[in-house]
Amino acid sequence: MRLAVLGAGAVGPAAAVLAVSRGHSVALWSPRGGGTHGIGATLRVEGVIAGTARVDVAVDVSRALWQAEAVLVSVPPHALGPVLRRVAPMLHEGVPVLLAPSHSLAPLLLDRLLASLGRAAPIGAMATPPLLAAREAGDLVRITALREGVEIAAVPAAAATGLAQLAADLFGVPFRPLPDAVGAALANHDAVLQAALAIANATRIEGAEPWDIHERLTPAVCRLAERLDAERLHLAHALGHAVTPLPTALARAHGVEEAPLFRMAAAMAAQGAAPGPLGLDATHLAESVTYGLALWLRLAEARGLAMPLTAAAVAVLEALWGSALSGDDLLEGLDLAQLPTLMRDGHPR
């Protein structure tokens, strides 16, 4: 199968390596061009997979999409909307698109863009990427772990099982279909952890003081994260979803024994450094607040549910960062009142 990978940070090239290792061919494209700098005809890979992988570096997106039988989009959350708007006119009828990971309700944005062009394609929303990776150099990628399982939803919802099978064939890890795209948005357990850490370490972040995420998971920070997570789980239950609690998700992701969160922190810290963000750059909080907590508040409001601690966390972070963090461009043109129908069927053609 020929896969087009749109995004050349860490996850995109690492996913390309996985796909090549399973016999697929890959074209790799960087939205800004810099991501593919230093990559020739091959990628070097270290970690759980070692060796080289042949890829075709595309100078423009149309070449990346040429003859593609599937498309993987893996870009930062603040770049996802612009990238989807840029590539939608070039996507081919019926070719599956996988968002790794999906942010907010991005699959519905892409579906609306395609509907406006009179086209349709199944869109997969991964709750997390299928791997953990870091970009070591221009053509060197380190894959530190493969996920034990990834949750995936789809628009239209009925396509989830087929897209789960497709993703498993491409990347070789198990995928579990979710009922709808809201489930994928609620499965973002990292959002509560990032928000709690940002509140507790705001002065370190502001002063660009090096700090380690796992070392700063103190009992107090863990209590805040657990209470934020309880509100996420309550919302998910009210919307008919069973999502993975934060400690269980971290145990699976890091291969440590599940325990009270603050006890797990020491085991995760022993696995190596996990540097925290430096500087009050709002993009650091985009995934956790803009496309995480703030989205959940919108969903809760539409349902008539209160999430007082989540609302307070968003307000405190906006005050600390001195900027609005709730503007979600991925919800453009979306009528939340029509959400159940849109998730099930997509936008009308």
Rank of each mutant, 00 (worst) to 15 (best):
A41Q: 13
P340S: 08
L261E: 01
T161N: 07
A196M: 04
L18Y: 09
A306H: 09
S62K: 10
A41W: 10
M264L: 13
L117W: 04
V5W: 08
Q67C: 03
V75W: 07
V55Y: 12
H24I: 10
G34R: 12
P177N: 06
A195D: 03
L278E: 10
S116N: 05
G33R: 13
L163C: 06
A27P: 00
P77H: 09
A236G: 10
L224T: 13
M268Q: 12
A127E: 09
A27T: 01
L250M: 11
D329Y: 06
R22S: 08
A300V: 05
A100S: 15
H78V: 09
L140N: 02
L317C: 07
T244Q: 15
T248I: 04
A306R: 14
M90A: 06
L131S: 04
L317A: 02
P275K: 02
V71Y: 05
L163S: 02
E206D: 13
E231D: 07
V59M: 12
A315G: 09
S74Y: 03
T144H: 05
T283A: 12
C222S: 13
A242M: 12
H78S: 09
R223H: 14
P89F: 01
A306M: 09
I123N: 04
V61I: 10
R223N: 12
P122R: 02
A53L: 12
V75T: 02
A196Y: 02
A313C: 13
L28G: 02
A100G: 03
H78Q: 15
A238R: 15
G162V: 06
G34W: 03
V73M: 00
M264K: 10
L72V: 07
L72I: 06
T290H: 04
L330K: 03
